[in-house]
Design a protein around this nucleic acid. Sequence first.
RNA 1: CGGGGCGUAGCGCAGUCUGGUAGCGCACCACACUGGGGGUGUGGUGGUCACAGGUUCAAAUCCUGUCGUCCCGACCA
Length: 560
Amino acid sequence: MKTSQILISTQKEAPNDAQIISHQLMIRAGLVSKLASGLYSYLPMGLRVLQKVEKIIREEMNKSGAQEVLMPVAQPAELWQESGRWDEYGAELLRFSDRHGREFCLGPTHEEVITHLAAQYLRSYKQLPMNFYQIQTKFRDEIRPRFGVMRSREFIMKDAYSFHLDANSMQAEFDKMHATYCAIFTRLGLDYRPVLADSGSIGGENSIEFHVLSESGEDAICFSDNSNYAANIEKVAFSKQACIDTPSAIEEKVPTKKKTSIEEVAQFLHIKEADCVKTLIVKTKNSFKALALRGDHELNEIKVQNLFGEFEFASDEEIKSLNLKKGFIGVKELTIDLIVDYSASVLCDFVCGANEWDYHLVGVNWNGIEFVEADLRNAVEGDASPDGKGKLVVRRGIEVGHIFQLGDKYTKAMNANVIGESGKAVTTLMGCYGIGVTRVIAAAIEQNYDDRGIIFPASIAPFQLVIVPINYNKSTRVKALADELYQQCLDAGIEVLLDDRKERAGIMFAESELLGVPHRLVLSDTHADNGNVEYKARNNPEKIEVRFDDALSFMQSKIR
RNA sequence: CGGGGCGUAGCGCAGUCUGGUAGCGCACCACACUGGGGGUGUGGUGGUCACAGGUUCAAAUCCUGUCGUCCCGACCA
């Protein structure tokens, strides 16, 4: 293609609302255009990238034996009522009525529709297992869309759903999808990790997320430095530890005027935050609970939720009504249940609030205090790996894929049965497997850029090669060479972009680099004289001269 | 939904405090020069100052309300 035939709309400055690199670069390179909060148009250059990602996913899914289908975006409320999610899903589900007053929603996911299809068309165990997938637009009315296409309201997802007669078959497909996802993300050129995950509200036991490693990721993920263990931070489970130290101090009340945070108290008393215990008050469905953590640890809200169900932090007024002094709450003489994190319950001679304004207790020990122990905290760098091998390293990740074993959650509710070998109806089991297609693009950019712009992995770049002729419109010799080379590349099936505009060299260089085209050939009058062309790779500052006659085979060797 | 910020040309911003002709840079158009790293010059195009009320002789500027948008927290591919 020639640049004069495709919309190229680059900007030097990114809009103010683009906060992260991928968003800024996607706007600056003219890949996407914002229509409204969380809604983006894909411009021609961006669509090329999107279609390349889709192609790779489609090829690997097909290779795995999955079958492509396409389901509607608009879905009738009855299906969601049948599964129970019409009431459960909340405001993220965009609902609307048609002209007859019938209720619908825009599909945020498609378990209901596919299960309905399975109930209709899967009749016999002999048909199983089967895996259906689609690449399609989803709509989730996110509370806070952000980061461009990373968290948008309308986005494209590859979602797959498999149906099975038994758990072994479901597990086998899960493993197959695991391998397929690895193949996909490898082909996409991403540095990714599969990690253990909490399956959240979707349900099921076994769940693995695929994360692209990036500082801008919204999730924290933990790895062992000495084994294959990897998990989302919210999933890292700790068990009860053995006590190492023995109590030796005598408890004492010390004045800590206005030192309300752990950091201030630790500094003031010249002790480590890890030698303090902080006490948080939460409100569960029908009672208040005090949660005690080591000073340097953070509460894991998912773990709390798994213990007590929905909860929220107590308000200042509620804390006051419990006769507690915010900033100076301790673990002694509490009138509500006390739950102590495993790593706090093994502390000796620690510091905590005195339940009295401007006082803390030092040299506190647990004997005589009534409490239960639980796993309440997030992992931190340096924790022992739960598999017993090595220590945990914490990194940021962008979730680009997630695979689940749903079991019979939907198939039971929606009566997706087959006739089994025995002649009786059997509820099928279900797996589900998602990839955020549009998010993959943003993630790829987060991982591959420099101060000049995007450095696309070759597999998803909008073009493989750009030919930059200098003085194309003035030098007939340059034009002839450039046109010849361009035609050779086209004939050889290379996705080549010829910059035929009447622009200065600097602009052509800057734009192709911003766009992240992996390979570049430059032609000038000098080259017309010496029979060479100049080659440069986007990810390497080195420029090399190649014989014009060898240019095509040289490029073929680079691109294959 | 709670807390905070911002809405002036396609993008980045000044002007708002202290009311008095709507401005700058980039981009875009024309011409000339230039021609291997977003070049230079001259001349242009483009704005109901988010919207609606109010105060005033006069409102981008002051007041009230609404909407949009972004950031920080709880959900997710």
